[in-house]
Nucleic acid binder design. Structure first.
Lengths: 198, 198
DNA sequence: TAGATTGTTAATCGATTAACAATC
DNA sequence: TAGATTGTTAATCGATTAACAATC
């Protein structure tokens, strides 16, 4: 369910003295309806108390487990350009238990440099590292023309979840999940709404 | 309709000698069903010919117009860190007629430097520039704690479409459209599928 | 005419909403 | 008991699908 991450973010922002929260509040903060919230949460099990609300800590815990965030996941980023570097520094990851375990680049001059606490490694090590260090997720932040090869290497190394920022369509085996993040698409959606308004 | 950008991308990748394309082909390339494609396209008007297919050039033109991409839109990026720089260099924008018109930063030492062909300006100029240069879209690529103020300035400058990459919830007036891009959400969705598989 | 493919209908499915009984 | 809020039902809505007549 695509709304769970939003619920979770709201719950994390809640002041620590808040013990319970009502579906109404979650709805208002996340732009859903209270009925949606209740229906979604009732699928996770029953953590609500009628007349009171939902237990914040328990709900947080439950959503995290549901989203597969109970364990820290090791993430490898390929491409240490501006985008890869931005991602490696992105604060939001650690908070959700994603650990940037490695950062790769093809440029030997960049290899050995550090981004935050992560050292840049050469992409030729990727396949070997991926099998040995068991990266759960690979992020592709290379130029478009390198994307397919990088994805192939990640797959060869046993990575089965891939997030692709390169503006290129890549092929993966059935067993691998790939999500394409197209930044231009987001702008197009804005342009679309803009046009509707006009 | 969220599928139109995907159709458009496929149409743009088509070899130039392809005059017509069948709903079946669009469907296969974009992961939709042929019936969906036909229904979507029939809403745009009738460009298809029974027994033949859709006129590629006309369809491209029509989708672009529908998405509000007929005119070049001027985009301002606020935050010239790694993410802002990556966005300014992102090849996919120009192809969709988004023109990066300006790039802002708060750090006076960076002001005056160039990213690609765009010079970095100081964020104090933002409001004035926005009204005068009529930016259609503003992109927020600052740290989370600066996001609200940057958004306020964009709104003050008359920008009514905003894409926010900062991991922060910001408030805008009703008349302004804001899209929140949360990179961690994308990872969470991957983690969710990963868990389903296991 | 025969083959291909659209545009559209009707059936199906799933998600959303409204409402309210259950219950703290 | 009175007020609040969940969990769930039934009604509604919209989107998807399958199928096929229309037509190139």
């Amino acid at each position: 369910m695509a709304r769970l991450p939003r619920y979770l973010r709201f719950l994390e922002e809640l002041p620590s003295h808040a013990d319970t929260v009502a579906s109404d509040d979650i709805a208002a903060a996340t732009g859903c309806t209270a009925a949606q919230v209740r229906k979604d949460l009732s699928h996770l099990g029953t953590l609500g108390t009628r007349g009171v609300g939902y237990d914040v800590a328990g709900l947080r815990e439950l959503i995290m487990r549901q989203l597969g965030l109970a364990d820290e996941l090791r993430v490898a980023i390929v491409g240490a350009g501006n985008l890869g570097t931005a991602l490696a520094n992105y604060g939001g990851f650690a908070a959700r238990r994603f650990h940037i375990a490695a950062l790769y680049d093809v440029d030997t001059r960049r290899v050995g440099a550090s981004v935050g606490s992560v050292e840049i490694r050469h992409v030729d090590q990727l396949v070997e590292d991926a099998s040995r260090e068991e990266f759960a997720i690979g992020i592709v932040a290379t130029p478009a023309d390198a994307a397919q090869e990088v994805v192939d290497r990640l797959v060869e190394g046993g990575v089965r979840s891939i997030l692709n920022f390169a503006p290129a369509v890549v092929r993966v085996p059935e067993s691998v999940t790939i999500r394409q993040v197209d930044l231009a698409t987001e702008l197009q959606i804005l342009a679309y709404y803009r046009r509707q308004r006009a």
